[in-house]
Design a protein around this nucleic acid. Sequence first.
DNA 1: GTATAAATGTAAACATATTTACATTTATAC
DNA 2: GTATAAATGTAAATATGTTTACATTTATAC
Lengths: 226, 226
Amino acid sequence: MISKQQHELSGALSTDCMALLEPLLSIRYYADGELIFARGEYKAGLCIVLEGSVKVGNYGKDGRYFLSKVLKPYESFGEFTIFSKLPRTHTAEAYGESKVGYIGPSKLKKAIIKQPEIALQLLQSLSTRLHMSLEVMDDIKRLPVIVRIAKVLFELNREAGGLESHSLSQEEIASQLGVSRMVVSSSLKELSELGLIEKGYRAIRIPDTHRLLSWIKERQQIKDLL
Amino acid sequence: MISKQQHELSGALSTDCMALLEPLLSIRYYADGELIFARGEYKAGLCIVLEGSVKVGNYGKDGRYFLSKVLKPYESFGEFTIFSKLPRTHTAEAYGESKVGYIGPSKLKKAIIKQPEIALQLLQSLSTRLHMSLEVMDDIKRLPVIVRIAKVLFELNREAGGLESHSLSQEEIASQLGVSRMVVSSSLKELSELGLIEKGYRAIRIPDTHRLLSWIKERQQIKDLL
DNA sequence: GTATAAATGTAAACATATTTACATTTATAC
DNA sequence: GTATAAATGTAAATATGTTTACATTTATAC
């Protein structure tokens, strides 16, 4: 079970909010890799991951893929197709088998007017995500890749609820940060030599979360939040 | 006067929304450069620029400043201090003399419950800004600095309602993109040699908006939106 | 077990942007 | 007008990350 604080930090919707929205959702199941929405599409609707994961990112004209985020249950996407009249910014694909809830614009707006608590929850989710996005933007401007990689690993660990070992390839880390696999490889080597992480095949283990955090904090260029 | 579409594209609040909120705002005037909020502060409250401009950005521990955005009238900031319980991500300072409206958490939440239209407007603003932020993030990953500079200039032009000439220093462009002043200088030289812009002292002129846009579009790495 | 695919390690050549340093231009205050 | 400050131009040295290319390791399917 996910704690309340974790909801707030990830932008996921609270169980209270889900209780209000769940009856209104159309449910659909997706197979691994199946396309949910593509960048540029105009069909409006809020999507909420209910089971499994959804990979959100973009393929460039040259085929290069950059991952934006892997959404877990109760995380939503596509708000701007409803509240602004903007097309999808990202391609969303099922990441493993997954169950996704969908609600259209008019239905959602009506629900908000009727139950403004829903709006407060969505406002929380959106403002948290904007917050995170702005922080990452600052990191990109200020921090060297190795520190940003360390932060990604730390975040991964926090979101997973403090698990020690994580299954992900260096390629995935690279596509998330928008850097080459090679620089990820050499950064991980360095972090591993510092004893901050342990590398494996498609795996990273973080033996001591606190030590990793303090290493990151020493390299932080601006005042820490939280 | 700003058109409705421009509101939607910038994340500014609509005049309808302002009509609802204005009676609830505490007004305060700031002198040029005066601090409004600093990064890390916890005092919650939504701020709305009413007159003048507000510069939002961050100073690093080494003193380096990166500009996030210059907010114009009817643009808001600080949502996450209310809807999430997060501290200020950015330092906000008056940019020229300015008038700022302020509304505290409980007052705003009550207003939303009473008039859910306010929530819809805030949701629009937040989702638009998240949308923009994600697009910029993708640009950082994919585009060379010169193209990103061209996009910033194009955006500036669009937001100013198609004015030809703009007063800003190369240093300001650099701090917005998080790059060095020198690379801005050489990029502007290149753009100027291509006839896409004209340089001046603290000034950029865009002789032909459409030509600049098509130059940018040719270099776009992912599918265009809008 | 063996073959194959996927992931990782590594290094040289290259590209891009930063840093440092100083010259030049332009505006502004007196 | 002159002095000063602010902004811009430029270039060499350096740093950081990418690209290309291939070797090696590890998992998985047969």
